[in-house]
């Protein structure tokens, strides 16, 4: 992975992380965490850890879906 490519994928990750802090709605926050995860995966793959990339790609969406349970609960209450 050469320098312009590192800058592009790092831009994806940093825009996602800053956007997760600035958003107010909780669905927008979850979307921004997903964008940050998408920016990080190419670095893991470029390092050669494909099995780690497979495991992380299957664990992080499960974490998001667990968090969505409590989002739905709060939306019903209000």
């Amino acid at each position: 992975m050469d320098d312009p490519l590192v800058v592009l994928f790092a831009a994806v990750a940093i825009i996602g992380a800053v956007s997760a802090h600035l958003q107010h709605d909780r669905f927008n926050k979850l979307i921004a965490v997903g964008i940050t995860f998408g920016g990080i995966v190419p670095f893991i793959v470029d390092r050669g850890y494909l099995d780690v990339a497979i495991a992380i790609s299957l664990i992080i969406p499960i974490t998001t879906i667990i968090m969505l349970l409590i989002c739905r609960r709060e939306t019903c209450d209000t």
């Binding site: 992380a17 997760a20 802090h21 909780r26 926050k29 979850l30 965490v33 940050t36 995860f37 990080i40 974490t63 968090m67 409590i70 989002c71 709060e74």
Partner: peptide, 12 residues
Amino acid sequence: LSRLISLEIPGL
């Protein structure tokens, strides 16, 4: 909830 969602980012 927003603190819990933000806790994902330092983990990454």
